[in-house]
Design a protein around this nucleic acid. Structure first.
Length: 312
DNA sequence: GCGCGAATAT
DNA sequence: AATATTCGCG
């Protein structure tokens, strides 16, 4: 009994805090009312709902989620995350986003709801971040010339130590915000690699230019490329014939090493994901993508990308 | 100084 | 593991 009560109290408190947070977010969003009407609306609804919840039952399951030590703005995402489950639907304004984002986050693992949610929020975040408020960024950019689009991002908070209003200033030795390589980004990255002739030929600067992602820096690309190359080479040696005996087979396609599964699945180009298997995480699937390297790599997970055949 | 790749650091 | 930063080189 008593225990129950205290739990309820606790929950109520949490909820109260959460509401505060929401209200703070709302204040922020308010500034961009015109750009983010939906977002504002959602937050408002969330607040109302929370309040109702707190007055009525007093019990409310508050999860303080949010991972990916994300970018600057906490912004509206958390709320969206919640509401994508609660209500959402109908309003799919996110089309601004350009490009096919379907596959990877398009996977549905009824079982693993949270995972799905994470992925969704993940890409959502990246996307949103780059279409973020800054009224200075005309969204016309989104027009797509062929397959090219310029992805915009609000850089102000991240890159400007001083020029920024108030808060987050990166004092001298502060570290940069971590660039989160969403699958979107990674796709662009791979795409660039392909057009530039593979990971060992493409140079960070070239890649960055090709990607046309606003705010993306050479260093970031460089770093990502380095990682990519590492994953790309033959893991071998260290733990040679070990548990990973049942790894994937690779196939050479036009000078590229491609995971056989992908190749045989007949997915010539991007877009068609691992149909039946619904990728979902784990084991076999995470693929770094196609690269040109003699060895037979098998990369760790994450980043699903449908490799395309290169034209060397 | 720039851009790169490798080595470190976080 | 994933990013960021630093270092040495051309």
């Amino acid at each position: 009994m008593i225990k129950k009560l205290s739990i309820m109290d606790y929950n109520r408190e949490r909820c109260g805090q959460y509401i505060e947070t929401l209200e703070e977010e709302r204040r922020k969003i308010l500034v961009f009312q015109r750009e983010l009407p939906l977002c504002l609306d959602l937050v408002t609804q969330a607040i109302e709902r929370c309040k109702r919840e707190i007055t009525e039952t007093g019990t409310y399951n508050v999860y303080g989620q949010s991972e990916c030590s994300e970018q600057t703005t906490g912004q509206c995402t958390p709320v969206l995350e919640q509401f994508f489950n609660i209500k959402d639907s109908s309003t799919s304004n996110e089309e601004e986003v350009e490009e096919e984002l379907e596959d990877e986050q398009g996977n549905h693992d009824p079982e693993n709801d949270s995972e799905d949610k994470n992925m969704k929020s993940d890409w959502l975040k990246s996307v949103q971040l780059w279409n973020q408020p800054d009224p200075l960024l005309p969204k016309e950019e989104q027009s797509q010339q062929m397959m090219e689009t310029v992805v915009k991002r609000d850089e102000s908070m991240r890159e400007d130590p001083m020029a920024n209003s108030g808060e987050r200033r990166r004092r001298e030795t502060e570290r940069k915000q971590r660039r989160c390589w969403s699958s979107q980004l990674h796709r662009r990255f791979l795409n660039a690699l392909q057009h530039l002739g593979g990971p060992h030929v493409a140079t960070p600067k070239q890649i960055r230019e090709f990607m046309k992602v606003d705010g993306l820096t050479n260093d970031e690309v460089k770093s990502h490329l380095q990682k990519y190359r590492l994953h790309t080479r033959r893991p071998s040696q260290t733990v040679p014939n070990n548990g990973n005996s049942q790894k994937q087979h690779f196939v050479v396609v036009g000078g590229l090493w491609v995971p056989q599964s992908d190749y045989s699945t007949g997915k010539t180009t991007r877009g068609a994901t691992t149909s039946g298997t619904t990728t979902t995480t784990t084991t076999t699937a995470g693929i770094y993508g196609a690269m040109a390297a003699p060895p037979a790599p098998q990369w760790p997970s994450h980043f699903n990308f449908t490799p395309s055949i290169i034209v060397e």
